[in-house]
Design a protein around this nucleic acid. Structure first.
Lengths: 204, 204
DNA sequence: TCCTTATCGCAACTCGTGTTGCGTTAGAGT
DNA sequence: ACTCTAACGCAACACGAGTTGCGATAAGGA
């Protein structure tokens, strides 16, 4: 039995407690700070190591590249837990959700993390997977907006509850990453109402 | 008069005819080939120079970085001219448009260019501006879909004709760059119909 | 407490990107 | 045809990211 536990421990990560865990926490915290402070471009393995008070070879050996660092930091922070807005109506929920996205991307400090995430995902499969997991969790959490609306009789039954939230956010992300057009609350509200109109038509 | 022309010529670019133009064409063509062949990650100033049959210092002196190269190649290729599909109905046009986007991003060869564009825009202001100009032209060209629909009486007058096309494409780009979910024709059709439902509701 | 070894710090090294100085080539005007 | 000079090619260099070997440290079990 003890042997089994030892093998399991070896498979997962040897010596999880103590120094290794401290180093890991310090480095991933440094990744976050560095990301908010300088953004993806300023992110260097060496900078992260310095901020974490750790030698760069340690970071190189355990993570390898900045993309893996970002992916790992994201996996760690996902537990933070996000809950969808609950205003009492589908339109209110969607507008609040859309404005939350707009507010995030119009604040340089907060926008650097998701932007870095997209940039990292374009360069590394590990980061791509982390990003996908992150947004899958988000969509799942946002699905309750549609489910509550269906319960209230505001919307017809939805084949995919998450689609309403996706459709609401898509035009905003489109502006940020594709067209480069500016974001404001009017755009957020329009995106929310457009998604709602499609949901009412039973398209999701 | 001759003096004026000379000054103008100096302001624009000295010695535009002959070797300089040939080098420029060769390099920008090489950028395109290299982009399709290897994608953004494989893009190196040195690779582009080699393929163009030009020394790397020439490219470094005239462009500086790969992002500027991509931006310049895009500016040059924009004249290629894209026209919106014209099927006779708004729904047909939008579905054709959406499927065009899906087909582009499900073909590794064709998807590398727009993906590289987004990646470059995340790292350089010059590329960001080029991308913005590119999609502005696209939106303008796609605006005729809504205008024709209004003329036919399919839709109420639109405040912004381009918004219909933007709204159609947004969920597809969202999947590619943000959520990482796969694309197919069903997704394209749903996006087209959702945008149309919002336009019918007079939201754009 | 003592031993084993995973993990870390340090320094030196490799390698590819980007830069600089200088001689050469080829457009453009006379 | 001749001259001037912008633009190019070449070679050597500078710089920083990433790697490697080795000694030091600390975690975990006996």
């Amino acid at each position: 039995m003890i042997l089994l536990l030892k093998q399991l421990e070896l498979q997962l990560s040897t010596r999880p407690g103590g120094r290794s865990a401290r180093v890991r926490d310090a480095v991933l915290e440094a990744v976050h700070v560095e990301l908010v402070h300088r953004g993806y471009l300023g992110m260097t393995v060496e900078n992260v190591a310095d901020r974490a008070g750790v030698h760069k070879t340690t970071v190189y050996r355990r993570w390898g590249t900045v993309d893996v660092l970002i992916a790992d930091a994201l996996d760690r922070g996902r537990d933070a837990g996000w809950t969808a807005p609950d205003t009492g109506s589908a339109e209110g929920d969607l507008i609040a959700l859309a404005r939350e996205v707009v507010d995030t991307f119009t604040d340089p400090g907060r926008s650097r993390v998701p932007i870095a995430l997209v940039a990292a995902a374009l360069q590394s499969g590990r980061a791509r997977q982390a990003k996908r997991d992150y947004y899958t969790a988000r969509h799942e959490a946002a699905g309750v907006i549609a489910e509550r609306a269906v319960e209230r009789g505001e919307l017809p039954p939805q084949a995919d509850p998450a689609e309403l939230a996706r459709q609401t956010c898509a035009p905003l992300f489109y502006r940020v990453f594709v067209s480069g057009e500016p974001l404001d609350h009017a755009t957020a509200d329009r995106a929310a109402r457009a998604a709602l109109a499609a949901a009412r038509a039973g398209l999701f």
